[in-house]
Amino acid sequence: MNKKIIKNILVFSNLKSHITYEDNLDVEIDEPIHPYLGRRWSEQLSKKNLNVAYLNTYNYKVRSKIQSFYYNFIVLPKKYDTVIVHSTSGIGRAFLVKLFNWKINVIYFSLSQINPRGLHLMKYFRFLLVYLDYTSSQKIYYGLNCIKDNTNLKYFKYKSVYFPFYVDIDFFQSKLNQINTINQIEPKGYILVVGDITRDDEYLYNELSTSKKPIIRISRDKTVIENVHKIYNPTRGDLVLTGVSFIDLSHYYKNSYCCIIASKEDYCPSQVELHQSLKQWHVMQFV
């Protein structure tokens, strides 16, 4: 009798990017609802004997940093065959997983350029960490941003694969067909600005200061919300919203006059979160 081999996969994930906006302490086995992840993937992958779990790597809000490190990098990965790590959750993590679990397969997503800021020493240190991440990984998936700018990648062509930008069209269409759940009374013909700290709000609000169209600014980041409250124009009908679900967000997108991205950090683009999440899914099919 043939025994099916079941592989267990752990995805290092920032669950704050998912729909619940909650920090979770332990591993999640439910598939997150995310328009950039796709839906029904867990079900499809389970048919291929791939069990997928998610770890919120930002759980140090619940545990201490030392406990979190011990749990995330030493204890937990031992229960899995493969760990998926992405660069945007912090460089050096793939290396740490491999260091403490040398038999484990590590899949790495390099989705942003190395941060160019800071002293030369700091830049070299970052370069070294990324190099170690690549060395520790069985496969590397990268976005276009890595082709020219990430010089480390040229040493690892034999195990790297390009994956482009994707979204789940079915997710958006199904949500848009549902009743609009937005509680806020929308201004008409508004400009929508979505995103966190990488957005240049000062530039954007300055540029649009004479526009008659109200701006709806949506962010999960408390600092961003506080800053925008200082510069927005409520008399024009501007709104500042937080904790907006993807379902509501899809309606905000659809009903907007236009959406604007003014990203001040090009090495870590706004859509990188989108990339990182969905590419975690893609890679599972290669594990």
Binding site: G143, N145, F165, F172, Y253, C258, S263, D266, Y267
Partner: peptide
């Protein structure tokens, strides 16, 4: 875009690079 939205983004960065490639 999947919600029929008109999008404006900053030029010369990752967004333009990846979208023009696609």
């Amino acid at each position: 875009m999947a919600c029929n939205a008109v999008c404006i983004a900053n030029a010369g960065g990752q967004i333009e690079k990846e979208f023009s490639h696609l």
